[in-house]
Amino acid sequence: AEDTGLRVELAEEDDCSNSSLALRLWVEDPKKLKGKHKDNEAIEFSFNLETDTPEEVAYEMVKSGFFHESDSKAVAKSIRDRVTLIKKTREKKPPGC
């Protein structure tokens, strides 16, 4: 996937027991972002695989002042890429991991 300059990873081990994940996002390459953002700060948040969308979380991060509006697409894409990977990993593992 194209590099957005942002890194999203699991903040806690995925126990596959429910649809809620703890994710952590931070800026890995500030040069790739257009607007102002907080460097060296990780943002931890919960993401529900069934009810949340990356765009909605990105919008709330912009509203909270973590990122500029011009970077919301990159934030949403980074979250989407990670969530897609987690879903694929879950599909490969036995039910309940």
Binding site: R7, E28, N40, A42, F45, E60, M61, K63, F66
Partner: peptide, 27 residues
């Protein structure tokens, strides 16, 4: 810890903390 800040937006909680030094070196 004093370095962690909690922000609420539209019912979602964001916990802001410094990126671990080890992760910064990776990038």
């Amino acid at each position: 810890s004093s370095l962690t800040q909690v922000v609420h937006s539209a019912g979602r909680r964001f916990i802001v903390s410094p990126v671990p030094e080890s992760r910064l070196r990776e990038s």
